[in-house]
Write a protein that binds this DNA or RNA. Structure first.
Length: 519
RNA sequence: GGCGCUAUCGUCUAGGGGUUAGGACGGAAGAUUCUCAAUCUUCAAACCCGGGUUCGAUUCCCGGUAGCGCUACCA
């Protein structure tokens, strides 16, 4: 690796589903390193596994990556000097180099059948020996082998592993050495002509001039095979950085069993991309000093360092992600938060999706200005209370579904309702609201409401929570909730809007409550 | 089984031959608020085990143990 060659990184997911958090972290670290070093980022689609790869997953992957705020300089969607960037479009290249290795004697044809190989492995297993390929076909004369292949015998191409230990450097793990005794001659091209992962990565990384390979440490044990390939081809070996595994709370590899693991899951839960990225950066990396926790993508680009990446596996902690998400929700510009929240309100049914909205825009809800303004105030009111945006409709439910009977019956309200002063407060409050002219038309202002409260206070001589709790139960159905100043106007305006389900005004709430209370 | 990687509070981590082993999430307590949340303050909580090396190891070395990974004509 020449020291002054431009830094080139790659992110190489398989299109087998939505982007997983582990892969997202790998993508992030690659991206951070590249952007910091002013290097290039390549997106390459590894679809040599025909069984599991699907074209539509490629689009999902790209959407997920973009949602996270990542971008790339070369890739199947944007092109670039080393195109194509999809492995299924590069099969000729792999075959060409396979033949070259064969001609140079660095690789050989293997005629063993899968059954034979399986038996070999079983025997090795039974005798508790190393399960490596016996090398049976290593000695076949190359010319004879070619004749057999030409004659129709099916053959795979295997790389010859050299007779010396294989060493390489890893930025996070240091020097790593594998004895050649324990690494099998790997198949690089299957008998059906399809290349194998450990081979194509090397060909592609080398041809695409990748200088630093950052990937999950599940590839660490594969690296010696790859290093042997670079050497066989006479190509420079890149720098490696193997990132630790992300574990679930049971210390097992994070999987669907652990709940949300794909980027799409987090997006659908209303986790902000900046929160996810910040969290992922902290999984395995810490800044100098180790005390700062909040980082934007731009700040990470400045601070990030591969040398400071921890080699030990990390347990994914949802609570800490939520903490960051709460932080970013509070930071979030209200307009953006409102649009994000609208999705979830629409999903919960308190808001109609505009039937005239374009068919492919199910992630965007179109609403008229008055509705938008009102929802932005609802969002402002309740967003500080949620871990994730999908909890917004639930938190805001006192606005949308008011149930006087339930409020009277709720065990958590029982104590407040039983206070001796409560009856007087309730009575006076009801009278005041009902006789208020603004309240009659759903236009009670915060000021007028406060005036009513002070009058109730003066007339009943009840103050503090003995005063506020009963009133809050009437208005919200619960003795805890947001401040009245902001809540009252939201209720009043909501009652005048054309929503799928009518929002009750303060007066309507008082009427319903009195009716339920007094029979 | 073989090989490899890893090992600091419950979790993410800082640190590093001599420290009161630091921060954050979560937990507990208190302050504040009409309430909840938020906020602020305080508290509890860790160097896997055993051998070396050393005046001194949590830190360096070796071994053990445990977890994870690889051991495919998967990626």
């Amino acid at each position: 690796m020449t020291a002054n060659s431009p830094i080139r990184m790659r992110f190489a997911p398989s299109p087998t589903g939505h982007l997983h958090v582990g892969n997202a972290r790998t993508a992030l670290f690659n991206w951070l390193f590249a952007r910091q070093k002013r290097g290039a980022v390549v997106l390459r689609i590894e679809d040599t596994d025909v069984e599991r790869s699907e074209a539509r997953f490629e689009d999902q992957l790209i959407d997920d990556l973009k949602w996270l705020g990542l971008d790339w300089d070369e890739g199947p969607d944007v092109g670039g000097p080393y195109a194509p960037y999809r492995q299924s479009d590069r099969l000729d290249v792999y075959r060409e180099y396979g033949e070259r290795l064969l001609d140079e004697g660095k690789a050989y044809l293997c005629f063993c059948t899968e059954d034979e190989l399986q038996q070999e492995r079983d025997r090795a297993q039974a005798e508790s020996r190393q399960q490596i390929y016996s090398g049976k076909c290593r000695m076949i004369d190359p010319d004879e082998a070619k004749r057999r292949r030409a004659g129709g015998e099916s053959a795979a191409i295997r790389l010859r592993i050299p007779e010396h230990p294989i060493r390489f450097h890893d930025i996070v793990h240091g020097d790593v050495e594998f004895s050649n005794e324990v690494v099998s001659d790997p198949i690089i091209l299957r008998s059906n002509g399809m290349p194998v992962y450990n081979y194509v990565v090397v060909i592609d990384d080398a041809l695409m001039k990748i200088t630093h390979v950052i990937r999950g440490d599940d590839h660490l044990s594969n690296t010696p095979k790859q290093v042997a390939l670079y050497e066989a081809l006479g190509w420079p070996v890149p720098e490696f950085a193997h990132l630790s595994t992300i574990l679930g709370s049971d210390r097992e590899r994070l999987s669907k069993r652990h709940g949300a693991t794909s980027i799409a899951n987090f997006r659908d839960m209303g986790v902000l991309p900046e929160a996810l990225m910040n969290y992922l950066a902290l999984l395995g990396w810490a800044p100098t000093g180790g005390t700062r926790e909040i980082f934007s993508l731009e700040e990470l680009v400045k601070e990030f360092s591969l040398e400071r990446v921890t080699p030990s596996p990390a347990v994914f902690d949802m609570e800490k992600l939520y903490w960051l998400n709460r932080h970013y929700i509070k930071q979030c510009e209200l307009q953006r938060l409102t649009f994000l929240g609208l999705e979830f309100f629409a999903k919960s049914g308190v808001l109609d999706r505009n039937p005239t909205s374009p068919p492919n825009s199910d992630r965007t809800v179109f609403v008229e200005k008055s509705l938008l303004d009102w929802f932005s105030r609802v969002t402002e009111l309740f967003a500080p209370y949620v871990d994730r945006l999908d909890q917004l409709p639930e938190r805001a439910s006192p606005i949308f579904s008011y149930d006087a009977r339930a409020a009277l019956a709720a065990p958590e309200n029982a104590e407040v309702l039983a206070w001796p002063q409560t009856k007087a407060v309730l009575d006076r409050f009801a009278v005041k609201v009902l006789e208020n002219e603004s309240a009659q038309v759903g236009k009670l202002s915060a000021e007028e409401f406060n005036k009513i409260v002070s009058e109730v206070k003066a007339e009943t001589d009840v103050k503090g929570k003995e005063l506020f709790h009963p009133i809050r139960i009437v208005v919200m159905g619960s003795h805890s909730g947001p401040a009245f100043d902001k809540l009252i106007p939201v209720l009043e305006e909501g009652s005048r809007l054309n929503l799928p389900k009518h929002v009750l005004s303060v007066r309507e709430r008082v009427e319903a409550f009195s009716k339920a209370r007094l029979g």
